[in-house]
Amino acid sequence: MRSTLFKTNGVFYRDTYYAHVSFLVEVRAAYRAIEISFRYDPLFCESADERQREEMRQALAEQIYRTDEPFVTECMDRAYPIKNGITVAVRGPEQWLGEHHAYTGHEELVLGERPSPGFFAVPNREGQYEFVLHVFGIYTPECRYSLEIVGVNEE
């Protein structure tokens, strides 16, 4: 039996970075598995505009002290396509369950005693869960996301 516990969608805009948003969800049964379907689109920003390139040039100078050519231009060229980066972390009623730190654009994650990589194998409990989206960087004008949480029990 599958029960939708939470569903939402939204949009992050370009130049959002180092941010997070979390959703608190009351889970009213101890599900054998809690499935998380998280998608965001687009995954890639295919090319940079001049402003982005200038920001990269500045970062190369300030962070690794490189202003020499052709290194700087090659670095900027090789950076693209660049991924929008959002990861998912989960706190359960009794402990943090983990995080899958990978920019994939599409995560189908499972919590429970046979979880997805990144998450501890513990039985799901009733109680408050927190689903966190860590926004590392958005490079496209918009990046639309959807998040759906489903509880799964045997019939």
Partner: peptide, 13 residues
Amino acid sequence: PIRIGYPLVPGCS
């Protein structure tokens, strides 16, 4: 300790 970060690789700097 000294590596490129945002906007090329967020968080690594």
